[in-house]
């Protein structure tokens, strides 16, 4: 069982034009920075990207958007990216905006092997159009399908060579549920350790979900909104 690769370029080597990718992170927090940089360098295009946000103009998925590598974006909030909003309003980019909880839970469903979930989010709104509505105990719910992603790319704080992952603080966000949801999951970590170095009781993502792992480098960890007392 050899999951360790030496860098992001090697990790993304199997990604092809037209694939569907999940990218962990919330805003710029907990982003797989190394893999995004490698994807930008690769020039792979026509991608469908599932991620809560679209980065900002010069960081995160925003870098891939600028290069027109993204054909379709599935996200919940894209307010921080002017280039994204421009491509969306001009119709150059296909965008599906979905509720944040629906996004997370559709990942979870994929990771738990469930085909669909029922959620009240969006009932009676335009996102309900064309979706099956079921009434349980007097309340309406939308049926939302589990995601089907070729790759999930996540960022963790620490990981071992078996693929077990530990996240840090709110950089956890979508990473654990996306890690579970990809057909192939790539994890980049700040620190790669040997089996046994992580306490089994403290593992957030069991290695069974992770196919490929490497220690990233030069993390910028940019802060989107620096607020202080």
């Amino acid at each position: 069982m050899n999951k360790v690769v030496s860098n992001a370029e090697e990790a993304i080597a199997g990604i092809r034009d037209g694939m569907t990718l999940m990218l962990g992170g919330f805003g710029l927090c907990g982003l797989p920075e190394n893999c995004i940089a490698a994807l930008v360098k690769s020039g792979i295009k026509d991608l469908t990207c599932i991620s809560n946000n679209a980065g900002v103009d010069d960081f995160g998925i925003g870098l891939m958007l600028k290069q027109r590598q993204v054909k379709k974006m599935i996200a919940s909030y894209v307010g921080e990216n002017a280039e994204f909003e421009r491509q969306l309003l001009s119709g150059e980019l296909d965008v599906e905006l979905i509720p944040q909880g629906t996004l997370a839970t559709r990942c979870m469903a994929a990771g738990y092997g469930m085909p669909a979930i029922f959620t009240p989010a969006g009932v009676g709104t335009e996102i309900a159009i064309g979706k099956e509505v079921r009434n349980f105990n007097g309340k309406d719910y939308l049926m939302e399908m589990a995601f089907d992603a070729d790759y999930a790319i996540v960022k963790a704080w620490k990981g071992d060579t078996m693929g077990n992952l530990v996240y840090r603080s709110t950089a956890r966000n979508f990473n654990p549920v996306m890690a579970m949801a990809g057909k192939i999951t790539i994890a980049e970590v700040e620190e790669l350790v040997e089996p046994g170095a992580l306490d089994p009781d403290h593992i957030h993502t069991p290695g069974i979900y992770v196919h490929c792992i490497f220690q990233g480098r030069d993390y910028e960890k940019r802060i989107e909104k620096r607020t202080v007392r």
Partner: peptide
Amino acid sequence: EDADTINAGKQTITMLPGSAVFDSAMSF
């Protein structure tokens, strides 16, 4: 400021004693 510790508005914040962190699926 800790880049890993932000709120839903993406602002840097702190955690109080007794805080708990979880993934987005559990959050919703």
